[in-house]
């Protein structure tokens, strides 16, 4: 593929942190996303319980406030979508963070 051609990568992940996607994991997530050129969004795919935020709600992964707005408890499924030349790397990095609970117990 030519460099500069923008591609879109989408991947589903799950919130594994027991206390959900609270302020510290949200800060780690947004900081990681900001390290990429790609535009990165998070979309609520399914929720284990109603927190008042509709499934399908999509936010900017680079904003802590946006990530917090999702109010995503443990077990929430989220679709990460990245568009841009480094979209692959961005999605890989975020998927890894979800997998290791953002390094937060």
């Amino acid at each position: 593929m030519d460099s500069g051609v923008s591609n879109t990568i989408r991947r589903r992940v799950e919130v594994l942190n027991e206390a959900g996607l609270h302020a510290r994991p949200a800060a780690v997530l947004a900081e990681c996303a900001r390290g990429f050129e790609a535009e990165v969004s998070l979309e609520l795919a399914s929720v284990p319980e109603d927190m008042g935020v509709a499934v399908g709600t999509r936010v900017d992964a680079k904003s802590v406030m946006d990530v917090l707005f999702l109010a995503a408890p443990c077990g929430t499924q989220i679709d990460i979508e990245a568009t841009g030349t480094d979209a692959d790397a961005a999605v890989d990095a975020l998927e890894a963070l979800f997998g290791k609970r953002f390094g937060i117990v």
Binding site: M51, F69, A72
Partner: peptide, 11 residues
Amino acid sequence: QEYLRVAGRVA
């Protein structure tokens, strides 16, 4: 859980 709900609405 209550925190997550309230923080989400404040956000």
